[in-house]
Design a protein around this nucleic acid. Sequence first.
DNA 1: CAGCATGTGCTAAGGAACTAGCAGCAGGTG
DNA 2: CACCTGCTGCTAGTTCCTTAGCACATGCTG
Lengths: 127, 127
Amino acid sequence: MRKQRLADLSRRERQIMEVVYRDGRVTAAEVLERMPDPPSYSAVRALLRILESKGHLRHEDDGTRYLYLPTLPKQSARKSALQNVVDTFFEGSTEKVVAALLDRDNLSEEDLARLSALIEQTRKEGR
Amino acid sequence: MRKQRLADLSRRERQIMEVVYRDGRVTAAEVLERMPDPPSYSAVRALLRILESKGHLRHEDDGTRYLYLPTLPKQSARKSALQNVVDTFFEGSTEKVVAALLDRDNLSEEDLARLSALIEQTRKEGR
DNA sequence: CAGCATGTGCTAAGGAACTAGCAGCAGGTG
DNA sequence: CACCTGCTGCTAGTTCCTTAGCACATGCTG
């Protein structure tokens, strides 16, 4: 079985995988309604079947219908997705990413305090 | 002209855009050698032309050949790429992303100090 | 100049992605 | 049972991505 990389997927396949990773355990109908520039219902079902045959997804029965979920755990997919963005757009610099995150949304004082604590924690462990 | 979203591109097109964003200003040959599962040289050139016609890239003359660069500034592309990953894999949580970043690579004490300073700075501004 | 290396532009074919629509199955309801 | 609803499986067709290969331009070198 091939290694599963989001980057190897076609446009539609990738869009579907993103929905599945975001929402975790979804029906074909749910995937459809959460896709950008929504294709046909039938197209979604076909793609889900293809993704399953390639090993990216599996399904569980939920009464008469299917619930799809990723085979690769979110934890892992998350890791390589982040890695990819950091390498591509942030020259591999953690600091730049954090700067962008801080700039992005207006975090509350509590949020900032938690981040601060997170870093302090890591510093302690580093010793 | 359409909005330029990485997510709307085909597999190969997206791979090329990632190389261009990573390396900034590249020739067709450079794009080829930095692509995963490299296609033919000719295919790369065709795709570069297509991306240019769609408005994702433009080129400058460099003697006899072309240097390609993105039309959308890296700063903007970076922002939406990060946004997308955060939403898809981190439930929109900045804190989770930072945690993953800290976990990811072994940062030196100086790196951590800088991150800490960055956050403190933001806290001050927030007041 | 002739030959070679290294570019670009273009086109046409091959194949993969994407789609629509039909058939079948199960559950609920009168 | 007969009928509707909501789901899956499948196939056939179309679109468009992806590719190879040819034609032409430029610069370098013997």
